[in-house]
Design a binder for these strands. Structure first.
Length: 663
RNA sequence: GCCCAUGUGGCUCAGGGGUAGAGCACACCCUUGGUAAGGGUGAGGUCGUGAGUUCGAGUCUCACCAUGGGCUCCA
């Protein structure tokens, strides 16, 4: 016997012990809701999405979620149909395929003899508006599956036919058809809006290629991305956010702030300018401090290895197409795509006893991976990079402690960087794997127990582990709510065996260590890209390439400025003097655009009093501070890696802001 | 790798078959001015690379390279 639970748009629910009739559902949720949200359903139109699920006792529970016709998902889904209708009204020879709702909108894939152009998008937008004005009724019909196949076959819609045939294979006998207006209809499970006019804010966004069912062996289709919202205002807001995201694009920030560049003679390989290198080095300094604190030792290992190494590690078998090769003295060499095999060689170089474990070794080695041309992107997907990579070789009974220590270290790193919004995913054994299940049991147990001992929430990705061991992935969620995978910890049973690693135990017998691969920032390159987007380029002072810029009111104060710059540099503060004979306002504008944390404005007053006036990034001004007071507070801010300024904005801040806003 | 788009001085971009433009940046000159752009003068590119069409090609065609948006891939 199966029971049915109806979930209403307001998340309240009612459970039936039998399959309720439509009328029963309508009655049970009250006449108003029935009229507003189920009006169509009473007339045979489904406004439901059903999910079948099993209860713990094995009985089936059918959950029917009733979507309000006003729900965004419904509007977007209907908008996808609207877009398909528009495209076919403009170009009747174009065939439709599928058009699902995605996170921020929807897309529809078309089988078109030619590609769409940006001008086509304008045409489609216009046509959609035209259709909306007709405000046609949306009607659901249920067709016997054979009728549907015949109808779509006649129309030449081979992709639809394929979809329906798949439904038939699954045992469906009827399919839902939604009609918009007199002639246009599409296969759909629903639900949809009741009248097209209910869609008020819809817009095409971009064109892309896509494969039928995401398989590159299948025909290439033309995808149009679009989005829809409840009203114009929400749509405008979304489009505005897209613009904001563009402004935060780390590729643009990198150029504007003079951090890094690319050149076509070294595709997908960043050049870090002095300022970018400062950030890079500061991050390495941070990691090195933490390495010391958490008992890691740093090592340096070769860049190129005889390919025999990769035969032994298994990378030749599985990773060859991502590696760079070179022939020297008739021997085949490869640039290292990861540090681990080299670390195994170094592990072996000295005989290990159980007293030597855990052996934690960190390596900022440069890696090269050939990434397919279509996947490279700014700093976040490059062909040469450097990880904050380390490997921990330990005994099985040390595993849980090492894992917990890693997470603690990661948490310390992320909170230092103002990135406390992250999620942990535990990926467990996949179907294809190596090693005994007992080993998997203890490794997965160690991971889970470590997380539990720290009282950290985590999610399980069952079956998502690597073939050589389970892993943790840490997803950082940035200021724009976008997830990024940065940190990772992977248990590896494979490499220790492939390299026949061992240690002598207390029992004087040979044992095999477990190997942990772990990174916190991921790669420095990728991290810098993500962090720039997260902070929109407003780095904390300790990471800022230029921490203080000295701006003179006239050239008369230049010597004073140069003297202060020297003093600051002697204190380890990165300072610059803008020596150009420009107006103060001009120099401030530039410093502001460069997002420099502190501007010291120096005029005759400051020279006379031996003081500085500090302009904060926010525009507030602290007048006539003694240099010592300024530099001491700043040093503290940098030393403690503060995220926010240590300076208290002046009391007249409000007045200043009022002045600004009235301008 | 696949589809589409783009590739003009350091940057952002306009132009579009008859031998290159703007703003910013840069250099020099004038101005020495207190919290987001003072004024003038000048230097700088053969228009991603190669081939083709043409009397003539940044401008049209093709190939390649790079970049961008997607797809796919991601030990």
């Amino acid at each position: 016997m199966s029971s049915v639970r109806i979930v209403l748009p307001d998340n309240s629910s009612k459970t039936f012990d039998h399959e309720p009739t439509v009328l029963e559902v309508a009655q049970s949720i009250g006449p108003r809701l029935a009229k507003d949200t189920l009006g169509g359903q009473i007339n045979g139109e489904s406004e439901v999405v059903d999910l079948r699920t099993k209860l713990p006792d094995g009985t089936k529970l059918k959950i029917i979620t009733i979507k309000s016709p006003e729900s965004l998902e419904v509007i977007r889904h209907s908008s996808a149909h609207l877009m398909a209708q528009a495209v076919q009204e403009i170009w009747p020879d174009i065939k439709v395929t599928i058009g699902p709702v995605i996170e921020n909108g929807f897309f529809y894939d078309f089988d078109s003899p030619r590609s769409f152009t940006p001008e086509d998008l304008e045409l489609i937008d216009k046509k959609m508006q035209e259709i909306l004005k007709r405000d046609e009724e949306v009607v659901r019909e249920d067709w016997p599956i054979q009728t549907a196949i015949e109808t779509f076959s006649k129309m030449g819609e081979r992709f639809k036919v394929e979809l329906i045939e798949d439904l038939a294979k699954k045992g469906e006998t009827m399919v839902g058809i939604y009609r918009q207006g007199k002639t246009w209809f599409d296969l759909c499970r629903g639900p949809h809006v009741q009248r097209m006019g209910q869609i008020s804010a819809v817009k095409t966004l971009s064109i892309a290629g896509a494969y039928w069912r995401g398989d590159e062996k299948n025909p290439q289709l033309q995808r149009i991305y679009a989005t829809a919202f409840n009203d114009r205002k929400e749509l405008e807001e979304y489009l505005h956010n897209l613009e904001e995201a563009k402004k935060r694009d780390h590729r643009k920030l990198g150029k504007d702030l003079g951090l890094f560049y690319f050149h076509q003679l070294a595709p997908a390989s960043p050049f870090f300018a002095p300022k970018g290198t400062t950030i890079y080095n500061e991050l390495q300094n941070l990691m090195r401090e933490l390495y010391k604190k958490y008992g890691y030792q740093e090592i340096i290992t070769p860049q190129m290895y005889d390919v025999d190494l990769y035969h032994q590690s298994g990378h030749w078998e599985n990773y060859r197409e991502n590696m760079y090769f070179s022939k020297v003295d008739e021997r085949d060499f490869s640039m290292k795509p990861m540090n681990c095999p080299g670390h195994c060689l170094l592990y072996q170089a000295e005989r290990k006893s159980y007293r030597d474990l855990p052996w934690r070794v960190a390596d900022f080695g440069r890696l090269h991976r050939y990434e397919r041309s279509g996947v490279i992107h700014g700093l976040t997907r490059v062909r040469t990079f450097c990880q904050d990579d380390a490997h921990i070789f330990c005994r099985m009974d040390q595993l849980q402690h090492e894992i917990a220590q890693f997470i603690t270290m990661l948490n310390e790193t992320y909170s230092t960087l103002g990135m406390s919004n992250y999620q942990i995913f535990l990926s467990t054994r996949p179907a294809k794997r190596m090693g005994d299940d007992s080993v998997w049991d203890s490794a997965e147990g160690a991971l889970e127990n470590a997380l539990k001992s720290l009282h950290l929430p985590y999610k399980i990705n069952a079956g998502d582990g690597a073939f050589y061991g389970p892993k943790l992935d840490i997803m950082f969620v940035d200021a724009l709510k976008r997830p990024w995978q940065l940190g990772t910890l992977q248990c590896d049973f494979n490499l220790p065996r492939a390299f026949e690693l061992g240690y002598v135990g207390e029992d004087n017998k040979e044992h095999r260590p477990v190997m942990l691969h772990r990174a916190i920032l991921g790669s420095l390159e990728r991290f810098i890209g993500v962090y720039l987007e997260h902070t929109a380029g407003h780095l904390p002072t300790w990471l800022s390439p230029v921490q203080v810029v000295l701006l003179t009111v006239t050239d008369r104060q230049l010597d004073y400025a140069r003297g202060l710059k020297k003093k600051l540099e002697d204190l380890g503060i990165r300072a610059e003097v803008d020596e150009r004979s420009e107006k103060l306002g001009y120099k401030i504008r530039e410093a502001q655009l460069q997002k420099i944390p502190y501007m010291l404005t120096l005029g005759d007053k400051e020279v006379a009093g031996g003081t500085v006036s500090v302009r904060l990034k926010g525009g507030q001004v602290l007048e006539a501070l003694s240099f010592e007071s300024f530099s001491e507070q700043l040093q503290k801010e940098i030393r403690e890696r503060r995220l926010e300024t240590v300076f208290t904005p002046p009391a007249n801040k409000l007045n200043q802001e009022a002045k600004h806003s009235s301008l």
